[in-house]
Amino acid sequence: MTNKTTTGVSTGVPESHDLTLVEAVNLALARAMTEDPDVVLLGEDIGLNGGVFRATQGLQQQFGCERVMDTPLAEALIAGTAIGMASQGLKPVAEIQFMGFIFPAMEQLVTHAARLRNRTRGRLHCPLVVRAPFGGGIHAPEHHSESTEALFAHIPGLRVVIPSSPRRAYGLLLSAIDNPDPVIFLEPKRLYRALKQPLSDDGARLPLDTVFILREGHDITLVSWGACIQETLAAAQELAQRGISAEVIDVATVSPLDMDSIRASVEKTGRCVIIHEAARSGGIGADISARLSEQSLDLLQAPVIRVTGFDTPMPYFRQELLYLPQVADIVAAAGQCMSYR
């Protein structure tokens, strides 16, 4: 099989290009639609306009209006229609413009998408992907900067995946589309155009339900996901200059959690700091901390520390940086953790 780029030009061997995260999403969608005619896209303004962040730019021109469908401004309709499509053998990828707009769709996702396999005793599946930009850091107005991944991680039957780089966005999105069960695929919009990586359109999938070790270390484990991975890596570099070796874990799939890998790292280091920009109470960080306390207390040489957002709505852009975890916050938390002897 030859490979196609998003412009529809066939190539024998995929070339590597420096791509942003949003370009990697576009490339993965084009690859999935080329490989499987059952993959269809739907969402608000995703066709002619290519989506609010241009993640689907050019795809309607390439694959036609029957496979890349503009919908009304109705998130419940988008989710319900996509679930119906999935139950009848299609593989819909639905876009919600911002995660803050996803709440009208939750009734459909929680009541139907998450339960379809169980309700029908495996007779029906729901191979649905719901894409949504999430998180702060782009000076957006109200309802455009939420990080509410924990709401979906709490629902049995929903898988929640969050890429943190172009390569992981490409490989994880392809795996999410392949998955026979519903996936909430949250894209950190602060990273959409913040960094580039060499990426080949080779169709290579990355595994779901597993963490990625981005940096090995032996003194402390730093656990994060999404956009906060950038600050976490920068903090690890600063800690290295102070003689502290930090292991950095990108959780990537926040539900179900790959606790075996996290525990293995903490067994090695004895210390753990968890970083996320979502509100502190009831967050994924609290779940990871509780599981470590329940299952691995004898491995810990210090309490697990969380560096998180606040239990408030995301503030307007003048105060965003006060809300989002910063490198200095992570370094200070690591220092506190290392102070226990």
Rank of each mutant, 00 (worst) to 15 (best):
C228W: 09
G309Q: 03
V40A: 01
R242C: 09
I229E: 07
G80M: 04
E231G: 08
V93A: 07
L48F: 11
E107Q: 13
D287W: 09
R159S: 06
V39H: 07
V68E: 03
T269I: 02
L174D: 06
A240W: 09
A82I: 00
V223P: 02
A114H: 07
A264H: 11
T34R: 08
A302C: 06
R318Q: 11
L21P: 02
G58L: 01
K196A: 10
A246D: 11
S164F: 12
M106I: 09
E216T: 10
L292T: 03
L116N: 00
L41G: 02
G157W: 01
V307L: 06
D329F: 04
R67G: 00
E320Q: 05
K189S: 06
G282H: 06
M33K: 01
G137V: 11
L222K: 07
G8T: 05
Q319F: 15
V130N: 03
L292S: 08
D201A: 14
I184E: 09
L172I: 07
R291L: 05
D311H: 04
A24S: 10
G203I: 05
L128I: 08
L27E: 15
L77Y: 15
T6K: 12
L59H: 00
I275W: 05
A79H: 06
A176N: 06
I102R: 04
E238T: 12
A176Q: 09
S164D: 10
D250S: 11
V52M: 08
M338Y: 02
H125M: 14
E146N: 08
D38S: 13
M259W: 12
I138D: 11
V130M: 03
H154W: 13
A76P: 00
S261V: 08
Q301F: 02
D219I: 09
P207Q: 08
S245A: 08
D260Q: 14
I220G: 05
R318T: 10
E23A: 12
I138S: 11
P141K: 08
T210I: 04
L195A: 15
A328H: 09
E142W: 14
V211W: 07
D45T: 04
G270L: 05
A79Q: 03
G171E: 03
L195V: 11
R280G: 05
S87T: 12
L206E: 10
L19R: 13
S289H: 02
P303N: 09
A286G: 15
F103I: 13
T81G: 14
E238R: 14
R167Y: 09
V9C: 11
Q197T: 14
P92N: 02
V13R: 15
I220Y: 01
L109Q: 12
V25P: 01
Q60M: 13
A264G: 12
A328D: 15
